[in-house]
C-alpha cells in the first residue's frame, strides 16, 4: 500500500525529529559566509561572531562542518531544568510547562553540539532522563481514566503525545464503537439518522424476551449534575460516558473521586 501500516496510526520518532528540526535556533558563526535563497526562507549573510537565527537542521549542517557554534537555548540549562523537575514532583496532577519539542531538541543538541554546553553534559542528560520518567508515570496514571468522549492532556510535548497516540486512539475508538452499538437501535426507533447502515427491521421487531436494559426514556435526557460540574472552572475534565439515554452509569459515582490528573488549575 502507499502508506505502510505503522505510519497510519502515528508518526515515527524520526518524523517528529524532522518537525523539531524546523524550529529556529541561535548560532554563532565562526566565519563569514554568503547567504542564499532557499525554498523556505532566505539564509542570511553570516558574519563571524554575529548571532543569527536559523532552523536547527541548517545549524546542524554548519556545526558538522565546523562553521559555527550553537547557542544553547535558555531552557536547556541546568538551573531551569532543575526547577522544572521540582515543579513536576510538587504537582503530581499537572505537567510542567516545557517547550514543545524539548526531548527532541535536547537529544539533537546533546548528540552534535556537546562542546557548546556550559553546564556539565552528563548532569543535563540525567536530568532530562529523570524529567521524562516522572512525566511518563503521570501520563500512564492519567490514561487509566480514559473514556470515549474526550480526554485532556495539557502540557505534554509532541513526542510524549506521539508515544501514547496509538494506544489512546485505539482504545477510544473501541469504546466509542461499543457505545454506539447499543445506541443505534434506539436511534432507529425514533427515526433518527445513523451513519452506520443498520438493518431497520431488527430493532423494531426484537422481542422483549431477551433484552438487557429496556430503553424507556426519550432522547433528550440532560445530565444536569454532570454538565454543571463540567463547565465550572476548577472541575474535573475527566468525563464519564454520556450516552443519550442512561439508566445509571457506573462511572457517575467514580467521577467525583477521580484522580483529576489532567485537571488544570
Amino acid at each position: 500500500m502507499s502508506l505502510p501500516k505503522q505510519l497510519r496510526d502515528t508518526f515515527t520518532p524520526k518524523e517528529i525529529s524532522f518537525l523539531a528540526e524546523q524550529e529556529p535556533i541561535m548560532i554563532l558563526p565562526r566565519y563569514s559566509m554568503h547567504g542564499t535563497t532557499l525554498i523556505s526562507a532566505k539564509l542570511p549573510n553570516l558574519r563571524a561572531l554575529h548571532r543569527e537565527s536559523i532552523p536547527i537542521w541548517l545549524a546542524l549542517i554548519l556545526k558538522r562542518q565546523d562553521k559555527c557554534n550553537i547557542v544553547i537555548p535558555d531552557w536547556l540549562q541546568l538551573s531551569y531544568l532543575q526547577q522544572k523537575y521540582e515543579d513536576e514532583i510538587q504537582n503530581p496532577n499537572k505537567f510542567s510547562k516545557l517547550p514543545w519539542h524539548w526531548i527532541t531538541i535536547s537529544k539533537l543538541l546533546l548528540d552534535s553540539a556537546v562542546d557548546d554546553f556550559m553546564d556539565p553534559v552528563y548532569e543535563i542528560r540525567s536530568l532530562i532522563q529523570d524529567l521524562r520518567e516522572v512525566r511518563l508515570l503521570k501520563a500512564r496514571r492519567g490514561l487509566k481514566e480514559l473514556n470515549e468522549v474526550y480526554l485532556q492532556l495539557d502540557g505534554l510535548s509532541l513526542i510524549e503525545i506521539n508515544e501514547v497516540r496509538p494506544f489512546v486512539l485505539k482504545v477510544m475508538n473501541q469504546l466509542r464503537k461499543l457505545k454506539e452499538s447499543s445506541k443505534i437501535g434506539e436511534q432507529e426507533m425514533y427515526g433518527d439518522d445513523t451513519e452506520i447502515g443498520g438493518d431497520t427491521v431488527m430493532s423494531q421487531d426484537v422481542d422483549d424476551d431477551y433484552a438487557g436494559v429496556q430503553i424507556n426514556d426519550s432522547v433528550g435526557i440532560n445530565h444536569g449534575s454532570n454538565s454543571a460540574g463540567r463547565s465550572g472552572a476548577g472541575n474535573s475534565y475527566l468525563n464519564d460516558s454520556h450516552t443519550r439515554v442512561q439508566g445509571d452509569s457506573m462511572e457517575d459515582d467514580d467521577s467525583d473521586s477521580d484522580d483529576d490528573i489532567y485537571r488544570k488549575d
Partner: peptide, 18 residues
C-alpha cells in the same frame, strides 16, 4: 458539542476527541 453535551475548550489545551 459532543453527543448533545457541551464541552468547554480552553486556550492552549490539548484534547483528544472525535
Amino acid at each position: 458539542m459532543i453527543e448533545g453535551e457541551e464541552v468547554e475548550l480552553e486556550k492552549e489545551g490539548i484534547y483528544v476527541m472525535r
